[in-house]
């Protein structure tokens, strides 16, 4: 199975990378680990004229903890490293655990945290080759005019299935985006458009250099749980991340973010307000579980029954909070 033709660039600095991207305009794409993009290219869902690899930019592979500032992780850090790195394990074990749940060992060896948060949305009607597509009318994401999952839908409902973003969003992570105009810091959540077809706000010519989890979040209790039908390999059919701050046994802050249920990592609004000031206990777990359940609307665009996926959102939310009670 071959790839469409492209020109390969491997700049050795971020500056050079930005320049190359700017030079190639819209037909250039950033290549990180390639485990998402190259598959879509093989399926002819993308055919960029050039690929600009981040592999040779050493600064993207740094993991730095600065007291008071938080934990900064280069976009090029691989998921294997993320899962095993001593600093990550110490400062944010939930992130290391979540990284270990992604895909397979071989994929984690090359896939990066930057690539993971920018993983494209997926759908059983989208991640297919043209040969398969010959018998199925093109949907929105295949540049057609309909959705097979929501027949009357006016937009694409492809689902975001990244494992790391929900946790990072729950932890209030920010991203550093570099472009020709310079660097800007933005909340991670702001990258996502919510549209299944083009799930990211405009990133043309830009590179995500890294992420920072603020110091305040590193002291929170946090965890990610993933629902899938097999013990490995699979994308989340549903995923829940929770970050929780307690003060004298009472909830000071609670953030709840889901994956596998919408076209973006989905923050459950009101989860924090509902919990504020309450003791962490079974009742709160049930309440948060219900909130998450009500907010999640998985569709039949993946394997697994949407109703089962929705129930698992509730169950996993309860289970995470229960795990914090120990």
């Amino acid at each position: 199975m071959n790839l469409p033709r492209f020109i390969y660039h491997s700049p050795s600095s971020l500056k050079e990378c930005i320049a190359t991207l700017a030079d190639k305009k819209n037909s250039a794409q950033v290549l990180a680990g390639g485990s998402d993009l190259l598959v879509r290219m093989k399926l002819r869902l993308e055919a960029p004229g050039s690929l600009v690899s981040l592999a040779d930019i050493p600064t993207l592979k740094d993991i730095v903890y600065r007291p008071g500032k938080g934990l900064t992780i280069g976009a090029g850090v691989t998921l294997s490293l993320l899962a095993s790195d001593a600093v990550i394990r110490e400062r944010c074990p939930a992130l290391a655990d979540a990284a270990g749940l992604v895909a397979t060992n071989q994929i984690r060896t090359v896939a990066t945290i930057g690539g993971n948060i920018l993983q494209n949305t997926r759908c059983r009607y989208y991640n297919r080759s043209p040969l398969w597509g010959m018998a199925v009318s093109p949907c929105f994401k295949r540049n057609g005019g309909l959705c097979h999952v929501v027949p009357r839908g006016k937009r694409c409902f492809a689902v975001y299935q990244g494992d790391l973003a929900p946790l990072l969003i729950a932890l209030n992570a920010s991203v550093k985006i570099v472009s020709k105009k310079g660097a800007e810091e933005a909340p991670l959540e702001s990258l996502y458009s919510g549209d299944g077809k083009s799930p990211f706000n405009n990133l043309a010519g830009k590179v995500v250099e890294g992420l920072t989890i603020p110091e305040g979040s590193l002291n929170m209790l946090s965890a990610y749980r993933k629902y899938r039908l097999r013990g490995g390999i699979d994308f989340p059919l549903a995923g829940v991340a929770v970050a929780l701050k307690l003060d004298n046994g009472l909830v000071q802050d609670l953030r709840l973010c889901l994956t596998g249920v919408a076209s973006r990592p989905f923050t459950v609004q009101g989860a924090g307000d509902a919990a504020k000031g309450k003791p962490l206990g079974r009742e709160l777990a049930r309440e948060e579980g219900k909130l998450a359940y009500a907010a999640a609307h998985p569709l039949a665009n993946l394997e697994g029954d949407p109703a089962a996926r929705r129930s698992m959102i509730r169950i996993m939310t309860e289970d995470i909070l229960a795990s914090f009670m120990v």
Binding site: S10, L31, S35, A55, T109
Partner: peptide, 16 residues
């Protein structure tokens, strides 16, 4: 194995 680590050759560019 690339530098001792298991990778998928089908998703690895030769130039890389």
């Amino acid at each position: 194995l690339v530098d001792g680590k298991p990778v998928l050759a089908c998703l690895t560019l030769a130039v890389g």
